[in-house]
Amino acid sequence: MSVTSTDENLPLGAAPILSDGDARDFFALLKPRVMSLVVFTAMVGMLVAPGHINPAIGFIAVLCIAIGGGASGALNMWYEADIDAVMKRTSNRPIPAGRIDRPTALGFGLTLAAFSVFTLGLAANWLAAGLLAFTIFFYAVVYTIWLKRSTPQNIVIGGAAGALPPMIGWAAVTGDVSVASVVLFLIIFLWTPAHFWALALFKSGDYGKAGIPMMPNVAGDASTKRQIVVYAVLTAISAVLPTALGFASLAYGAVAVVLGAGFVWYSIGVLRMPEGDEKMIPAKKMFGFSLLYLAIIFGALMVDALVPPLLAMVG
């Protein structure tokens, strides 16, 4: 077989080279860690939703949502290869490292996007498929191509893409969008800025080098810290809404109140962080707690939805 050799001097992913990427590199394009969050929140959306879905169809729906989320990740990496190359955290991703070229990543992402949307439509319903298509479009085009490089509100608006999976899971079961599913969306949507800006505070050098207008780089640390507190408070309030609206138990509500207080407390720690603090320990703690917070909130919603039917089976 005749092929052209890999030329290290060629522009990033521009040449029709034979890919050195193996299956693991293609899997890495799917952003597996983000995908695991998508799978988890989508599953919670399905479990909390009233009604019944065939377990096999439910599994296939979650798989489609996961693959759709992965397609968004691949399209994001296709477009952001130049930024990824200059940021330490992302410089070893398959495209900047030269193991996969950009056209291949684009084709991979588009193929997975199409397959995941159409399979979800055939297996579950076309509302869920439409929401998945919108999520992929929003993340790849609205967030990645448009907002990320143009406004410090990038992750506020773009966060909608990450917040949609529970609504898709809900729609896969019920075939509709209801207030309860919008609340699940709202919890992740309001959590995202507090989570990402905590990261952006201690990674502002990296973002500045890549020319991404994150909030600390544009509005400064002081303004970012104040906004983190605002979003932490809004997140804590939104997380209590499932109980207030009657689709989660008082036990879940208690968990949400305690965790919400913790989330706000950590955000106040960030607010009190002195100017010029290079270690930024409170911001790192806030970032770590934010991951735990979302996992426990959605975990509690899942337990809340699973316990009554299990008790009914036992009783």
């Binding site: 077989m1 092929v3 034979l18 890919s19 050195d20 990427g21 193996d22 299956a23 693991r24 293609f26």
Partner: peptide
């Protein structure tokens, strides 16, 4: 041009995954 061992290995990995 002949494929390198690394390229052959990567292609095999992709083929199996596909």
């Amino acid at each position: 041009m002949e494929l390198t061992e690394a390229q052959k290995k990567a292609r095999r990995s992709r083929s199996i995954a596909l």
